[in-house]
Amino acid sequence: MRKRKLRGSLYMDLEEELITTEEFERFRKNYLLKIREIEKQIITKQKTIEELTEKLKIRVVLFPILFLM
């Protein structure tokens, strides 16, 4: 969400001629790269959460008495 706001304000800066087209393109490219990087990190973290959740489910099934205390 924050990145979208930055990109939107970046476009406004271009419209108001506070930055050049070249600067806009460079910033836009950097924002998009950062967004992709963050999306990959999110996917990796989601997979880790799923793996840990599965491991925990297995432990609860195998050792239920430990989780009742």
Results as ranks from 00 to 15, higher is better:
residue 19 I to W: 02
residue 21 T to V: 14
residue 62 L to V: 00
residue 60 V to Q: 05
residue 18 L to G: 01
residue 12 M to V: 15
residue 44 T to W: 09
residue 22 E to T: 15
residue 65 I to L: 00
residue 37 E to L: 10
residue 5 K to M: 01
residue 37 E to F: 13
residue 59 R to S: 02
residue 61 V to I: 05
residue 32 L to R: 13
residue 53 T to H: 10
residue 66 L to K: 02
residue 37 E to P: 02
residue 54 E to K: 08
residue 18 L to F: 15
residue 54 E to I: 10
residue 34 K to N: 12
residue 62 L to G: 04
residue 51 E to Q: 05
residue 30 N to C: 06
residue 6 L to W: 13
residue 40 K to T: 06
residue 46 Q to A: 12
residue 28 R to S: 11
residue 57 K to L: 07
residue 57 K to V: 05
residue 60 V to G: 03
residue 20 T to S: 13
residue 1 M to K: 05
residue 50 E to I: 15
residue 38 I to T: 13
residue 16 E to A: 05
residue 9 S to P: 05
residue 29 K to W: 05
residue 1 M to V: 13
residue 38 I to F: 06
residue 3 K to L: 13
residue 25 E to W: 06
residue 20 T to L: 07
residue 68 L to K: 02
residue 56 L to E: 00
residue 69 M to R: 01
residue 29 K to T: 11
residue 34 K to P: 08
residue 57 K to D: 09
residue 36 R to K: 07
residue 15 E to L: 15
residue 12 M to E: 14
residue 14 L to V: 09
residue 20 T to I: 08
residue 45 K to D: 04
residue 67 F to M: 01
residue 68 L to P: 00
residue 35 I to A: 08
residue 10 L to N: 08
residue 41 Q to D: 12
residue 7 R to E: 06
residue 52 L to P: 06
residue 48 T to G: 07
residue 52 L to E: 09
residue 13 D to Q: 11
residue 21 T to A: 12
residue 24 F to T: 09
residue 14 L to E: 00
residue 48 T to A: 05
residue 28 R to F: 07
residue 37 E to T: 11
residue 63 F to G: 06
residue 21 T to C: 03
residue 19 I to G: 09
residue 12 M to D: 15
residue 25 E to A: 10
residue 64 P to G: 04
residue 33 L to T: 15
residue 12 M to F: 15
residue 52 L to W: 03
residue 60 V to L: 04
residue 32 L to N: 06
residue 40 K to V: 07
residue 6 L to S: 07
residue 68 L to N: 00
residue 63 F to S: 02
residue 18 L to M: 01
residue 67 F to E: 00
residue 44 T to H: 08
residue 18 L to S: 10
residue 51 E to A: 10
residue 55 K to G: 04
residue 65 I to N: 00
residue 32 L to S: 11
residue 22 E to A: 14
residue 23 E to V: 11
residue 33 L to Y: 14
residue 35 I to T: 05
residue 46 Q to T: 14
residue 48 T to Q: 12
residue 65 I to P: 00
residue 24 F to M: 07
residue 54 E to P: 04
residue 63 F to W: 04
residue 27 F to Q: 11
residue 58 I to M: 03
residue 15 E to Y: 15
residue 35 I to R: 03
residue 30 N to Q: 09
residue 7 R to D: 11
residue 47 K to N: 14
residue 65 I to H: 07
residue 6 L to N: 08
residue 10 L to V: 10
residue 54 E to A: 01
residue 41 Q to S: 12
residue 38 I to M: 11
residue 52 L to R: 02
residue 38 I to E: 14
residue 43 I to T: 10
residue 55 K to R: 04
residue 20 T to Q: 00
residue 13 D to M: 14
residue 32 L to T: 04
residue 12 M to W: 15
residue 8 G to I: 07
residue 34 K to T: 15
residue 54 E to M: 02
residue 36 R to G: 09
residue 25 E to P: 13
residue 47 K to M: 08
residue 48 T to I: 13
residue 48 T to D: 07
residue 6 L to T: 01
residue 48 T to P: 00
residue 22 E to H: 14
residue 17 E to V: 13
residue 44 T to C: 02
residue 58 I to A: 03
residue 65 I to E: 06
residue 62 L to Q: 05
residue 42 I to W: 05
residue 50 E to G: 01
residue 62 L to S: 08
residue 19 I to F: 01
residue 18 L to R: 12
residue 34 K to F: 14
residue 16 E to T: 07
residue 42 I to K: 03
